[in-house]
Design a protein around this nucleic acid. Structure first.
Lengths: 140, 140
DNA sequence: TGACAGGTGAGAATGGTTCGCATTTACATG
DNA sequence: CATGTAAATGCGAACCATTCTCACCTGTCA
């Protein structure tokens, strides 16, 4: 059990959640993921290392982890939600509409502007996310 | 048949779509809407003035109108998609997490920034939308 | 270690959205 | 203005991501 594992176990406990094999499996999948897998992909990958995990538990675990603030749910149009370990720095997502590739884009400056805008309306941001659908520019 | 009606009929034709009573009904509902109704609400309202429209057609019509660029689909998490007439000026949406109210927020400046950011990555924006979930600040 | 609240697996249920197909309609053409 | 035809519609069934139910396990705390 390495440092990261302990860290996540502690985070689970801090959130009042029991530390189970399934939850650790799902977390490790997302930790190692270089992409943004959806529930089905998390399930498939988790099954390889755990075997016992069920689809229902993957969903329940993802919901619990999101609630605990350990992971983040990305909602796209017309496709199942994707998940990622809660990023240290805020970023938005750009989808290449030709390849389906999801690219993270930094947005510190934009987020600051957005926060000012919202504050002017008398609100404070609880959560924000931008989805950009874009196409690769032809090299000119 | 007033000016707006003709305008939409022309827009439908320009998009290669036939002008049907159902499509005009759905469009008129969205034109008059001060809120952002979902498919079910559009159906209910359209049924009042048309009677014959079916739920399936509402969905097909909303998809066709979106495709034609006449309306815009707003995807929120854990709730059915909402729709609005394609706005003249770009704006994003803020959801009051306590009341569920949807507030339009102007974002010209932010969109410009975002466009630069994306251009730097070699992409051009096809579509973009930001969803902010916020809570009313206590008056201090 | 024992009790038990909370977690899990399997499959059924749910709910928004889409599809299939027989029927109807818009509209180009004569 | 009548007509053929491709497109649109209504209805209900199908779809698919997600959630629920319930009987059975398992962390956790004493």
């Amino acid at each position: 059990m390495n440092a990261e594992t302990t860290e996540f176990a502690d985070a689970l406990r801090a959130a009042g959640l029991r530390v189970t094999q399934q939850r650790m499996s799902v977390l490790s999948i997302l930790m190692e993921a270089q992409d943004h897998p959806n529930a089905d992909e998390v399930f498939t990958r988790a099954k390889e290392i755990d075997g016992s995990v069920s689809f229902a538990t993957v969903y329940r675990t993802l919901a619990a982890l999101e609630e605990a603030g350990l992971i983040r749910r990305l909602s796209f149009e017309n496709e199942p939600a994707r998940f990622e370990i809660m990023p240290v720095s805020e970023h938005d997502h750009m989808v290449d509409i030709d390849t389906g590739e999801v690219i993270e884009i930094d947005s510190a400056e934009i987020n600051r502007l957005r926060q000012e805008l919202v504050a002017r309306l008398g609100y404070e941001i609880v959560h924000q996310h931008t989805l950009i659908r874009a196409r690769k520019k032809p090299v000119s």
